[in-house]
Design a binder for these strands. Structure first.
Lengths: 126, 126
DNA sequence: TCGAACCCTCACATTGATGTGAAGGTCAAG
DNA sequence: CTTGACCTTCACATCAATGTGAGGGTTCGA
């Protein structure tokens, strides 16, 4: 598929697909005329990238951890340098922290919403 | 306390404390000479703001949800407009999505690290 | 052959969260 | 009174993730 279809399938502007490529997050083959071509695997890939971005990771980190997440079982250890492992461990811990923080605040918001809803249904009965 | 102490206690650059104030996330009293003064409650507040920011929420959303998270039990429903409630519900759901995504990826990273570690300890024994 | 719908690169603009520094006021201690 | 450590505002700089559009090629169907 070409960039337009990938864009539609992932809900991602073409501009960003090119940006992700520029940042080294995805690779695209080229047709003789220069058009980018993608296969189905790129859809998941882009989704994952978007998820990680939305989760707050910057592209330069995503670029580092992506290779580790690709082949779920065929993990080959490409270069696993000590620094890289350290980065990964730090990032894993940061993610855990984020999850905790997010969960705490999400629960607080949810609690508030529940309280409001209760108040509304009891306070001004239908 | 003045801005320097709050900065130290929260690990937040003064610049950002002023920025948060500018964005309406915190309020500061002023001494006659114009210096900002804070009380202890601001420490928690700032921590919470940082957590939410790090979780990926923009200041304009944080500004909206903060009033709901402040007085944990003394929830007063200041203005709880329908739009506001909708924003909150959307945000709660987005946070849930983020948590799911983050957790999935965190686990993948962790799994990778475990696999690498196992390989290392078995492959090249100490 | 023409137009529509693709695609390309290049490059400047914007937004949010920050860094950084200039120019200057305040205040306590030496 | 001066020095140093605070504080103030203002304003420009940066970085990542985006938007946007100009200028131009390709492909395909009417």
């Amino acid at each position: 598929m070409r960039i337009g279809e990938l864009s539609e399938r992932t809900g991602t502007p073409r501009r960003l697909l090119r940006y992700y490529e520029e940042q080294g997050l995805i690779v695209a083959d080229r047709l003789p005329n220069g058009y980018r071509v993608y296969d189905a695997s790129n859809v998941d890939r882009v989704m994952q990238i978007r998820g990680l971005l939305d989760a707050g990771l910057p592209t330069r980190i995503i670029k580092q951890i992506l290779p580790c997440l690709n082949k779920p079982r065929t993990i080959h250890f490409p270069d696993a340098t000590p620094e890289m492992l350290e980065t990964l461990e730090n990032e894993r811990d940061r993610m855990t922290d984020r999850i905790r923080c997010l969960t705490r605040n999400r629960d607080a918001v949810a609690e508030y919403l529940d309280a409001v809803r209760e108040k509304l249904t009891s306070g001004s009965p239908a």
